[in-house]
């Protein structure tokens, strides 16, 4: 239960951060917090109480946790980093053109 709550709290914290922070880098950090919440949620879904890690070396029977979400999270973590790399390289370009990272300055395109 606690794990689910923390996961959802992290997702909400990330989204709230994206909505209420004005610095672009901070918005990107908030995005990665929300992503972390999603990973934690996936791992929590796969957990079985009393289960052991899904490794057969030295396995002595008993329940195991679900290995599939772990595989998904491994993929998702890399994707999250890719998004981060793209975002930061965009931010550098924004800074080059605007001299600031404040999103309220970043509104020349409108209407």
């Amino acid at each position: 239960m606690m794990v689910y709550l923390t996961a959802f709290a992290l997702i909400m914290l990330g989204i709230a951060g994206m909505l209420f922070r004005r610095n672009l880098l901070k918005i990107i950090m908030a995005l990665s917090v929300a992503d972390s919440g999603a990973y934690l949620l996936l791992i929590a879904i796969g957990y079985r109480s009393g289960g052991t890690a899904p490794i057969l070396t030295g396995y002595e029977g008993g329940p195991m946790v679900d290995p599939l979400p772990q595989a998904l999270v491994l993929t998702a973590i890399v994707i999250g980093v890719c998004v981060l790399i793209m975002a930061v390289s965009l931010v550098v370009n924004v800074y080059r053109h605007y001299g600031t990272l404040d999103v309220s300055e970043l509104r020349r395109l409108r209407g």
């Binding site: 490794i55 070396t57 290995p67 599939l68 491994l74 993929t75």
Partner: peptide
């Protein structure tokens, strides 16, 4: 492979 996560990551998925 003995590690099932690795099996999934590199083979099944």
């Amino acid at each position: 492979g003995a590690n099932i996560v690795t099996d999934i990551v590199f083979d099944l998925r």
